[in-house]
Amino acid sequence: MDALKDKSKMLSRWLRHRPDAIGITLDKRGWTDVAELIAKAAAAGTPINRDELLQIVAESDKQRFTLSEDRLRIRAAQGHSVAVDLKLPVKTPPPVLYHGTVQRFTASIRKHGLLPGRRQDVHLSANRETAEAVGARRGEPVVLIIETFPMVRDGYQFRHADNGVWLISSVPPQYLRLPENGTSTTL
């Protein structure tokens, strides 16, 4: 199973950040040809067959990848640092979304809000547990609460990825709350 996990990580790298690492090209919507991906992955020293690829797509805990209806093309569901336009529709989010981070970033977030960094969008989740798991990847998690209705009222647009992640270009600090001893306070 570790081999599939490693291959999944490589797929994320290639389809989100470094398609050039194996010589594939993403179209403007982030899609690439499955057969070409398989061939170029093998040539780059990471052989992956079609069955493994389908298993990775189906079993990815975060549903990171999307196959086209005809299963001939694949793309990352979100998280790109390369320029793509996934053409995700604007949707009305739930009243509250969450973002997981760690304490060392909260001073900057208080000042600048949530920014996408190297990615195209800020990633938000619909539940606290997912945000905690994201934050825990870097240390003790801090879960920020995003007040979405005031943002929508003020003209911000949210998009919803195929894997359930909510995306937005940024979240200014006035829309964020930081839980404090079980209660929430404005950042």
Results as ranks from 00 to 15, higher is better:
Leu167Asp: 01
Gln55Leu: 14
His99Asn: 13
Ala133Glu: 15
Ser125Phe: 02
Ala35Ile: 03
Thr183Met: 13
Met10Phe: 11
Gln78Cys: 12
Pro116Ser: 13
Ser68Pro: 09
Leu187Val: 14
Pro179Glu: 14
Ala41Met: 15
Asp51Glu: 14
Val134His: 05
Val57Thr: 08
Lys40His: 09
Thr186Asn: 13
Pro179Gln: 08
Arg119Tyr: 06
Leu88Ala: 04
Met151Ile: 05
Ala58Lys: 09
Ile22Trp: 12
Arg110His: 07
Ala58Asn: 14
His160Glu: 14
Leu15Ser: 02
Pro172Met: 03
Leu67Asp: 12
Thr185Ser: 12
Asp51Leu: 12
Ser68Gln: 15
Ala161Cys: 10
Arg177Ser: 12
Glu180Ser: 12
Ala43Phe: 03
Ser81Tyr: 06
Pro47Ser: 11
Met1Ala: 12
Asn181Cys: 02
Pro89Phe: 10
Leu15Trp: 01
Gln120Pro: 05
Leu72Ile: 05
Gln103Cys: 14
Pro94Gly: 11
Arg71Leu: 13
Glu69Phe: 01
Leu4Val: 04
Arg137Asp: 11
Thr185Asn: 11
Phe65Cys: 01
Leu115Gln: 15
Lys28Ala: 10
Gly79Asp: 10
Lys5Arg: 15
Leu88Pro: 05
His160Met: 09
Ile48Ser: 03
Glu180Tyr: 13
Pro179Trp: 04
Val84Trp: 01
Leu11Cys: 03
Lys7Ser: 11
Val142Ile: 12
Leu187Lys: 03
Glu129Met: 02
Ile22Met: 11
Gly23Trp: 12
Thr148Trp: 02
Pro95Ser: 14
